[in-house]
Nucleic acid binder design. Structure first.
Lengths: 323, 323
DNA sequence: AATAATGTGTCAAGCGGATGACATATTATT
DNA sequence: AATAATATGTCATCCGCTTGACACATTATT
């Protein structure tokens, strides 16, 4: 049997109400009684049942975090920051890896609602997920337009794309291609591509089917590079794709940066360590996390907070030796 | 106001009990009534309150996952696998990044207990955390000895160390050093070091203070390599450290693998992509995840499951161009 | 026609704790 | 000595849902 408040009361020789008063710091409590109660709590190894508490309080301090996969430097760095911030504020994170699949994302969202989370941060998005229309439940999206009523946080994707492509041009690239993940919907990240298309004369964007399958990605890139030997610049929409490009170039004996220049996107700490030579666009992940957390907290504490908002944070080009 | 079971009952024109019967598939229900109830659920956008359910059932289907940081390829790959497996089984993960700090780990553990999680997986460990002695609560540890009653899952650390060092020796290294993270306690991972010390004549192990501070790590390594120019082999206890070694070697114009050979540890998919040239010891992360999940599930479903157990999974040396 | 199976409702108690109302002491303040 | 502040207890209710007991229909089966 689990120890409950009532047991603590008995052991301390006080009433359940008094124990609750100690636990919640309410009303008048003498030092002596407080001590007795705390001793009993220690003696019995009592942990209050937060389910019961939450049920009554109608507040769980749970936050749902939905992302494609935690096993990706961008998301893991983002998730770490988000979790840390929430943890300091007394919130707990329920982690959901949607793999980008509709079914999964949908059932995660539903689960979170049933779990009575206080809010949800979404970094993944499949159109038509009913649960995202749940009334009164605060949502914040990162780099995705979930609905007109859900605020979006992200970095300046257009500027990021511009910086990357401009840089390639300045370094003398004549034939730049763009590698993108599956061009889902109209997400803010598509602005990277937009910038590319605005800057280059004959833009060619390749949409990689499944960016989590590195073998397949490598094969595709190999094919592209053989079919377009004139390519001398690649703007990859994330660092992992850029990394695969480098690997393939190496296999094909194409010299980087002499024959081919590559720019990535994200600039996570991890990639900075593992692949320091990569020129990339650094997203301000810490700031994105902070903005998302603060926004969600605002929405939770004050439902009248303006929802229709887009927060765009500045990016930075990190020039290294792949360009 | 949130929609509750009672509202569904009213809308469907049936009793609350009947709605509950539909929801839980209990007792006799005619097709017609079931339909009426389901229509009402849809119409009202009703989501059952799993808090209330859990409170009654004394089962939350929550699992706590405590690790140092999700922003590390080994842990993020592990966490992804663990979360996926649990999700398929109807469990939800509460993510806890302890940063390796006692205070944090301790308060996370306490929080998880208060939250009534059904079980906890720990990949981090500071000695003396009271909550880990919580009676009746199933724990599984990965690569750490939490208590004699908590099963440990991990890969064959001694064999991994042996493979790495043996390989360096076979490649002709005469002066091999070992780079370790902070040598916490007697964890199974210290067996990597043990193997190194058993195989090398004058073993020198460097304990890096904070492996998450790459600048500091780089500085330390630089110092070591300047002070010991005879070093021709490094066995790093994880891939990130190995990566920093490569970076430093590059800065110091030390040629890898000609003058210096480096072997890492973990062999995550991510590092395989970003740093394919690294020779490393691959841990069977998927298998570790699976073993941990299955063990925890067993403990949850049958408390009499044998706890005192150590599951050791095989490792593999991946030879690439840094050796 | 009698019995069994099926379908639905009512009612009450319980999960663990929070809270408000009220009663009654004890101690402090004027 | 009277009043106020402090300290603790009792009691009932609520949070949203589950479950068992029991009653009463309606169908199906023999």
């Amino acid at each position: 049997m689990k120890v409950k408040l009532e047991d603590v009361a008995k052991t301390a020789g006080v009433s359940p109400t008094t124990v609750s008063r100690v636990l919640n710091n309410r009303g008048y409590i003498s030092e002596k009684t407080r001590q007795k109660v705390e001793d009993a709590i220690k003696e019995l190894n009592y942990y209050p049942n937060d389910l019961a508490r939450s049920l009554f309080k109608k507040r769980t301090n749970f936050i749902g975090l939905i992302l494609p996969t935690i096993n990706n430097p961008f998301f893991s760095e983002l998730a770490l920051n988000i979790e840390n911030l929430f943890s300091d504020l007394g919130f707990k994170i329920i982690l959901c890896n949607s793999s980008g699949h509709y079914e999964k994302e949908s059932s995660y969202a539903e689960m979170l609602i049933r779990q009575q989370v206080d809010g949800i941060i979404v970094c993944s998005y499949n159109r038509g997920i009913e649960a995202y229309n749940h009334p009164q439940l605060p949502f914040v999206a990162i780099d995705h337009y979930l609905s007109p009523n859900i605020p979006v946080i992200g970095s300046d994707n257009y500027e990021g794309g511009r910086l990357a492509v401009q840089h390639l041009i300045e370094r003398g690239c004549k034939s730049i291609i763009h590698m993108n993940g599956p061009a889902d919907l109209e997400t803010p990240t598509q602005l990277r591509r937009k910038a590319y298309e605005d800057l280059v004369e004959n833009p060619i964007t390749y949409e990689l089917e499944d960016t989590f399958d590195d073998e397949a990605t490598a094969a595709t890139i190999k094919k592209i590079l053989s079919e377009h030997p004139e390519t001398d610049g690649i703007f990859a929409s994330d660092d992992l794709i850029a990394s695969v490009c480098l690997k393939v170039a190496n296999e094909l004996k194409i010299k980087v940066p002499e024959q081919l220049k590559v720019v990535g996107y994200d600039g996570t700490q991890l990639v900075q360590v593992l692949l320091p030579q990569l020129t990339t666009v650094r997203q301000p992940i810490e700031k994105i996390a902070k903005a998302a957390v603060l926004k969600l907290i605002d929405l939770i504490n004050d439902p009248s907070t303006v929802k229709k908002e887009e927060i765009t944070l500045p990016v930075k080009l990190l020039v290294n030796s792949t360009t």
